[in-house]
Design a protein around this nucleic acid. Structure first.
Lengths: 337, 337
DNA sequence: CACGAATGTGCACACGTGTTCACATAGACT
DNA sequence: AGTCTATGTGAACACGTGTGCACATTCGTG
């Protein structure tokens, strides 16, 4: 664990013993007065409550957790996130966890850039850990299994008896998008992918390639887009500069599609009459009026609620078999197809 | 604290004593072998390391913290967030905290909607708490003072000896934007505000109103925009429908400005020749090529680094006087003014 | 041989909390 | 008077960890 420094001693936090001393009772009385249970004389209870307020006493959650109480801590392993939709997802997941009375411990970045590691997070007695597909490893599943920490993976399905998962069928999503454009008579397909090696991007590409194969077609243009608007803009510019006459552009995510729309409009290529554009995720930006992007749905709310449900189920029945929830994506028809 | 349910007993987490039993040594030896310090026979050290790996042992951070070690937990109180820029800010703040070896505990939502409260978070022995201006209360500052938890407020300055703050001069930002447009000869000003009662929106409005006053002008149109793209779009539509001939539109944030741009373009109002539009925050969307929004800078990176700096300083010197860092916003000239 | 330093070990303590339970007192009932 | 129940209290325990320190052994030096 990085970040350990020689800090000066910080004034001591108020303890139950201090309250007991001020109120002239035992620490046991303080606990009974503030939490209920057992009996406490009414007058003494008042004194205790007053002393606690005066000192600003707040029970130490860590000490209480040692007693076997649930910590309500849930690690959210977000990994390397590069666009607004994905960072918004993490935020909404935190919101959902808060609603359920959990405390999300957010872990970002890649191993090399971070001052902390996922493994370090396992030092906390987590009630659960939610890991984004791209940050999931078999070693991590193994460790959580040994520590009896319920694990939920999102954005990827995994074959492991120790972890639940929720993901959308990425390949099925791009299959539907491709089929829609084939049905419109489109013939020259382009694809803007995400960053190299990103799982979801690879799967979305696979769905496109396989569907084109089955139609006896092949991809006419391909360029990585970094999952960002800028990346999508640049990739679309490269596509335009390549001279290929693309009539159907499928993007690995909405940010890329939005960037591509920007580039196409600045070159006076009319969407959708000259070129269809479809994104993926139904990010918030996709529905902004100036984009009205046709996209493959992968709705944040549904994913979050499913994750919360899986956590609750796992806590309720720890030995329950692992479950993978697959969300079959639907195309949301707007104006760019 | 909501969320307590009668959960079945979860299998016990691996403890140092279990490792000691398996390796045939004392618990003290386990601690020395895994952490360094003291002395351990080399052969026994190997046995201990092996036993720990076999059992999947991970020290319990909470128990260790009770020893007086720093928890490295930092509460991030985000409150009610409605747009991508603000949720992205929270995410980037978490990234920054992770880089410094901290664990961000994210607290979202309003009191009524949430299963947890900020006060509940104070049960954790936090190393610091970072609170968004809109969620800041004097009572909270008081509580943290009593618990000796360093507090940093962002997005608002506060006059309290117990908390540090970082904020940009909202009013100065809209002052500069207004002056810029006055200097271009604009006369008919409109304003799209944020949600009712939001601090930053009120201050940004104030800067605009005061500057117009000093120029002997007044606001010609005003509409709340909810801090979202949709809200900005609707407000701009209302402005167009009002029949007022606005030539200068200032928006309380970039999302509102982007929504307004969309509405103006769909009515063939050319920006900036017919109407200047200026946003606030320099959100990521502002620099997307299809917007190229002129905006008042309030950069995420600088705010995050300043917050991290304030935390570090407070930890290094707990008795240091409270400090407020004010970021004087500059206008970032792009294409909409 | 005596002394000091280095290596090694495990017991016991502290951290802050919730809870059990032995003990004390008072009141009600037979 | 004896028994049972309700109210009330604080000592002691456990939770899991890091660490101080008493004790033991070995090695090196004068």
């Amino acid at each position: 664990m990085a970040g350990n420094s020689d800090s000066p001693v910080r004034p001591k936090r108020v303890t139950a013993q201090m309250v007991a001393d001020l109120a002239g009772v035992s620490r046991s009385a303080v606990s009974r007065a503030l939490n209920g249970g057992g009996y406490v004389d009414a007058q003494k209870r008042e004194q205790i409550v007053k002393a606690a307020a005066e000192l600003g006493y707040q029970p130490n959650a860590l000490a209480a957790t040692l007693q076997g109480g649930a910590s309500r801590l849930v690690a959210v392993v977000a990994g390397d996130i590069r666009n607004l939709h994905d960072s918004n997802f993490v935020f909404r997941l935190c919101e959902g966890l808060n609603r359920q009375g959990f405390w999300p411990l957010v872990i970002t970045g890649t191993q090399t850039a971070s001052g902390i590691t996922v493994e370090d997070a396992l030092r906390f007695p987590l009630d659960a850990i939610v890991v984004r597909g791209g940050s999931m490893t078999e070693a991590l599943v193994d460790r959580c299994g040994k520590l009896n920490i319920p694990m939920i993976c999102y954005g990827r399905s995994i074959e492991n008896a120790k972890a639940d998962a929720v993901c959308c069928e990425n390949a099925a999503g791009t299959r539907k998008a491709t089929e829609l454009l084939l049905a419109k008579g489109r013939k020259k397909f382009g694809f803007i992918s995400g960053p190299q090696g990103f799982f979801s991007s690879d799967q979305r590409r696979r769905g496109l390639i396989e569907t084109l194969d089955q139609a006896g077609l092949s991809l006419s243009f391909e360029h990585p887009g970094d999952f960002t608007v800028d990346g999508g803009f640049a990739a679309a510019q490269a596509m335009i500069a390549s001279g290929e006459t693309i009539d159907a552009l499928i993007c690995a995510n909405d940010a890329s599609a939005i960037g591509a729309l920007g580039a196409l409009r600045s070159c006076n290529i009319d969407v959708p009459s000259q070129m269809s554009v479809i994104g993926f995720d139904d990010a918030e930006m996709a529905r902004w009026p100036m984009f009205a992007l046709t996209t493959v749905q992968n709705p944040i709310d549904l994913m979050v609620e499913t994750i919360l449900d899986l956590i609750q189920r796992r806590i309720t029945a720890p030995e329950r078999p692992a479950k993978t929830v697959t969300v079959m994506p639907e195309i949301l028809l707007r104006e760019t197809h």
